[in-house]
Design a protein around this nucleic acid. Structure first.
Lengths: 236, 236
DNA sequence: GAAATTAATATGTATGCACATAATAAACCT
DNA sequence: AGGTTTATTATGTGCATACATATTAATTTC
């Protein structure tokens, strides 16, 4: 050992985070109340302020603490718990379940979109979009039906892509990553999609809407409808 | 000497993160490929390695980079994009939309749960649970119907709480924060809940299932059914 | 007394350094 | 050759220090 004494028992920021978490849960620090400042905590834990800072920053981004310069750090009254949904790449999702994935292009065309779609993409004019319908299967069983509009002004290259081989989502992930977007979940009846999902028209199905943007330019609006009984899972 | 004077125009970790993000999106660093190591990047940006480290760590937790000691940092082939769902506290959600929130306790009892609930909570025996049904309204209109089971072995204090005044969720958030849990979304028909949600029995509704744990002990299983037309929104 | 100025303070972050840890590559030894 | 040991290397983390920044509190000014 170059340092002379054992494992240099310094305190890790994770251990501080865990200790503070325990105290918060035990209400050692009351909800809404200030906790000691970083310098004092560093003294208590016998470590540098930077280490305490890292621990508290982590708890703040997890939603358990509120931090403001000069005002100090306080325990959130109602912890803003967050669930992280790793956005499913359909192929990976299906294969992770051990099933064989298959993608089928159903329709492809360049059209003027209906007003609802224009609204989602915040398009003012009547520009033409690429409209694609596809079916994604797991072990030959319909898994998800997708109805997608793609803004050709934003990603013109996709018009030349053979979408029978490459699904629009796969191509977009690779060639046109978005900067931000929104997602919605809703329940509706299968309706006309029942034919593709092989279910009854009045079966309730889970639908996921997604709109993505490249800075100020809309990229795509996708409506993905899962087969009945499908559940979207998240870890907390 | 290195002791700074003047404004010491140093580089922020955010600016490095943004620059690297731009390069990733532009495929300056090809997907799957290694990017320069921290020392080299620090030289390039004219800053300390710790600053680069902070930037790259951030991109890694965002799912754009994969980092491994000695192996280096590489660009993810398929960025594991994550959507963060801030778990809705029903009251806050309703009031944020400008509506008046109301909570109504419908039923309360201590019962032996059906097998399906026991399974969710991983209960082997036939312990008795607190069973609560409640309705949450926005401007007098039904917003969400909740059917919840609470494990009395884990949080015995709740048996003494007046749940007509305090909703189980509010009490639990305050007195029994969970360590982890799971969440599921699914579509189903309203069925018997139609009466409370004031809709048709065969209307499709969005349901959210949640199971939470305090370490190895199950706390609660909640089935929250939203009124038809409700959508769950997430930011990407 | 109200408004403007100044001081005080807690968090935020950059730096240079040292060492820890994990993973790989190279060297080594039967 | 095949397996074991030993360097090498990139990231991970901790520390002490300095300064930045956002607020709040105190003080001064009109």
């Amino acid at each position: 050992m170059t340092k002379g004494d054992g494992p240099v028992s310094s305190v890790s920021w994770q251990s501080i985070r865990d200790t503070m978490m325990t105290r918060i849960r035990a209400h050692d620090y009351a909800p809404g109340e200030l906790i000691p400042n970083e310098v004092d905590l560093a003294t208590e834990f016998g470590c540098a302020r930077a280490t305490v800072n890292r621990a508290l920053r982590d708890l703040a981004t997890s939603g358990f603490l509120d931090r403001r310069r000069k005002a100090g750090t306080r325990v959130r009254e109602a912890p803003r718990r967050k669930a992280t949904l790793t956005i499913p790449l359909t192929r990976a999702e299906v294969e992770a379940s051990g099933a064989r994935y298959e993608y089928r292009l159903l329709e492809r065309g360049v059209e003027v979109p209906p007003p609802a779609v224009r609204g989602k993409l915040k398009l003012a004019g009547d520009e033409r979009l690429l409209h694609v319908k596809s079916l994604h299967l797991a072990d030959d069983v319909p898994h998800m039906f997708e109805d997608r509009w793609i803004v050709l002004d934003t990603v013109p290259e996709i018009e030349a892509v053979d979408l029978a081989k490459t699904s629009p989502n796969v191509w977009l992930v690779r060639h046109a990553p978005y900067t931000h977007g929104t997602m919605e979940f809703l329940a509706e009846t299968a309706g006309a999609r029942a034919k593709h999902l092989i279910c009854a028209a009045d079966d309730p199905v889970l639908t996921m809407l997604r709109v993505t943007w490249l800075d100020a330019s809309p990229i795509t609006f996708a409506r993905q409808t899962f087969s009945p009984s499908h559940r979207m899972r998240l870890e907390l």
